[in-house]
Design a binder for these strands. Structure first.
Lengths: 142, 142
DNA sequence: CCATAACATTTTAAGCTTGCATGATTCTAA
DNA sequence: TTAGAATCATGCAAGCTTAAAATGTTATGG
């Protein structure tokens, strides 16, 4: 007797596909705005997440990617003079990332561009709040 | 007078980050199961979306990626004898993708593996339904 | 009919991402 | 204290993804 496809499993697969689809929509939005500033999508994402001085690992977590990837992306931003790698004040293993003046002002412009025509425009602020809470609950924190 | 950061923009940025985070969690889940079958994450995603014969473009839409990417991924699956590219019955521009017998049975195994330990386990079925509807509304269909 | 636009796929170049190995440093428990 | 485990960043290999250009095919307006 072969196993019938379970409705619950199918529904979950569908939700996964939708999550991926929306993530793509968001990534495309970032990519579109980034080129206007001479940045790639990955560089723009890194810049967006640089809310203040932080380590490579912290940035990797904010970007939801591997630390070795941030090495690659920060290399590019550093070459453009937008970010600096400094010695971490208390941990000699770590580096402290800091935006340069130019990086800071470019980040401001980026945030303004990103705020226009939100990729979540199809949802009301209330719906976005519900979505926020569901996502937060769904994400497993290590 | 400089513009103050608007709370709504900040909230939206946070939701975008969460969507990306959950998408990563799902991708990691797929990746983990895929290696057990000798597949990469992209290959497994393609196999998962092959619900029946379809064109390259249809598959690309299901995978939320560019058509040229499916060319790359299907190349690999075809070399492994899991998928075949056939002439499309009515449109000579298009190809029709079909799973081989081996591809079909591997897909069955994959679906079983993917159904275990769902990456959406943190949500109840009811919450998953709400999430489903919100995502569907948020995604802009062309 | 025919010119032209639109479409499906592929190729190529450039850049992104992961996983693993490595070196340096810090933490922890005996 | 000190040996061993854990952590931070990086280098590298392999694979993924996109954008743009090229080819062949189909659809459409005049």
């Amino acid at each position: 007797m072969t196993k019938l496809p379970e409705p619950q499993a199918i529904a979950e697969r569908e939700v996964c596909g939708l999550v991926n689809g929306l993530a793509q929509q968001i990534a495309d939005h970032v990519r579109g705005r980034a080129v206007a500033l001479g940045l790639t999508a990955a560089q723009a994402t890194a810049l967006r997440e640089m809310t203040g001085p932080m380590t490579m690992r912290e940035l990797a977590e904010r970007m939801s990617c591997e630390p070795s990837n941030t090495t690659f992306v920060i290399d590019k931003l550093e070459k453009q003079g937008l970010v600096e790698r400094r010695a971490h004040p208390t941990d000699r293993r770590a580096k402290q990332l800091v935006l340069t003046a130019e990086g800071g002002s470019l980040r401001e412009q980026l945030l303004e561009l990103l705020a226009q025509d939100s990729p979540l425009g199809g949802l009301t602020p209330q719906q976005q709040r519900v979505l926020h809470d569901l996502l937060e609950q769904a994400i497993i924190r290590p």
